[in-house]
């Protein structure tokens, strides 16, 4: 499997690895995928009072492309509004990272993860 330079960069230097306090009302968690399928992504976002995402963290069990997709996503969502973040499409991620067809599902998973995280924080805050 040939990886693009961007995938290798995110794999070797993943951005925003970590965990946010899920008990906080300002934190939304999206966990998607399953161990049996070979990839699990946990994406967390923290929003400020204006609904702007001020921090994002991830952890991913999966191939290099899955790690890169989630790492990239954490960079992209910071500073965006929830509405904005939920608009991110998997095709943008796949294009940016140059994912081959067999790895498109990694970007789909990343899109699912941010949507789930946005939904979670909205449910917590009732907005």
């Amino acid at each position: 499997m040939a990886y693009s330079e961007k995938v290798i960069d995110h794999y070797e230097n993943p951005r925003n690895v970590g965990k946010l306090d899920d008990n906080s009302k300002n934190v939304g968690t999206g966990m998607v995928g399953a161990p049996a399928c070979g990839d699990v992504m946990r994406l967390q976002i923290r929003v400020n009072d204006d609904g702007i995402i001020e921090d994002a963290k991830f952890k991913t069990f999966g191939c290099g492309s899955a790690i890169a997709s989630s790492s990239l996503l954490t960079e992209w969502v910071k500073g965006r509004t929830l509405d904005d973040a939920a608009q991110i499409r998997n095709t943008e991620i796949a294009e940016e990272l140059g994912l081959p067809p067999v790895k498109i599902h990694c970007s789909v998973l990343a899109e699912d993860a941010i949507k789930a995280a946005v939904r979670d924080v909205r449910e917590k805050q009732g907005r």
């Binding site: 993943p14 690895v17 965990k19 966990m31 998607v32 995928g33 399953a34 161990p35 049996a36 399928c37 699990v40 992504m41 946990r42 952890k59 991913t60 069990f61 790690i67 599902h105 789909v108 998973l109 699912d112 789930a116």
Partner: peptide, 24 residues
């Protein structure tokens, strides 16, 4: 493993077989 949410959960004592995973 530092990157793995599963390792996190394992360290926290979560039994992964009882977790309901969002299939995809």
């Amino acid at each position: 493993r530092e990157l793995s949410p599963l390792w996190d959960m394992f360290q926290d004592g979560v039994d992964l077989s009882t977790v309901e995973w969002a299939a995809h």
